[in-house]
Design a binder for these strands. Structure first.
Lengths: 154, 154
DNA sequence: CATTCCAGTTCTATTTTAGGACCGGATTTC
DNA sequence: GAAATCCGGTCCTAAAATAGAACTGGAATG
């Protein structure tokens, strides 16, 4: 049966997963952050079927995460580039990466790390903070209804 | 055909998506953070088919994200509880939530926010930082091979 | 002890996926 | 400048995942 949709869900997590939460989309976005731009390069790097890749890329473009731009090498082909919206997914990728690093490797297994390019040091683990900077734990938070767009500041 | 697996991928992002990157797992985890514990409650809250939920919960338990514990109300039933590993996914959920809040709502649409329970203020946006605390952008980072478990510090 | 609740399992129709064959235009090779 | 090859797809098929409903068997409830 047709996969359930959360495009109109109230919860932002559900909406996000609806947009980019399938098997391939975030891997394509990760590759885009790694500098991959061309159809063939995505296909080869991911080992994805061309048909899948084709529809995934189309969906990502429709979602405004990627856009098609003229190839940077001057050829008549096109390239896929991250939009501003797509670049906003970097923190999602980092969060997934850090959880994987911490939980999914055996002690002696080779792995990669994300480093600060300037100093070559691993980046700091992401952390939750209150608006005033206090470190927070998940037990210190709660979901609340937000104010709706106060058009004139009362 | 059988869905491609990334359990043994080098990239931590791919491994994470392999473990919890399907259509339902993260929504189940999100519900768990919201205090949902029972099979029926997940099923009703998500509107998921029982068969799907059953296999998803089994997979999450196998992955060590959830565990079965005796029901807190003293009945003979069991409950699903987040493990330490599962609680580590909170930042992933927060990252997805913030991206969704920023990119997937129309101006006038009602939405929810994650607030600091103590002060009732929205939490700070997640941010990337170097180990020394400097704010970083994605262009300031790069993926590198990590040292493999230096058993004796050379 | 009859009824309803709970947590699943089983079954089926439909959709999605992986993978390969195919195809037309662009580019490189000779 | 013709042939061979590359690139970026589309189309097709078999197997697998999904949604949804029906069924089951033990627990709680009256």
């Amino acid at each position: 049966m047709k996969r359930k949709s959360f495009r109109e869900a109230e919860c932002p997590v559900a909406r996000t997963l609806d947009a980019i939460g399938d098997w391939w989309s975030l891997l394509i976005v990760r590759d885009a952050f790694d500098g991959i731009k061309r159809f063939g390069a995505f296909q080869q790097n991911l080992g994805i079927a061309k048909g899948m890749l084709s529809t995934r890329l189309r969906d990502l473009v429709d979602a405004g995460v990627l856009e098609l731009v003229p190839a940077s090498d001057g050829s008549a082909y096109q390239e896929y580039a991250l939009t501003e919206k797509g670049r906003g997914l970097f923190l999602v990728i980092v969060a997934l990466r850090q959880w994987g690093e911490d939980n999914l490797y055996r002690e002696d297994e080779p792995r990669s790390v994300l480093v600060d390019a300037e100093k070559g040091q691993p980046i700091a683990p992401l952390g939750l903070r209150a608006s005033d900077g206090r470190r927070l734990d998940w037990t210190d938070t709660r979901v609340e209804a937000a104010e709706i767009n106060p058009r004139k500041s009362s």
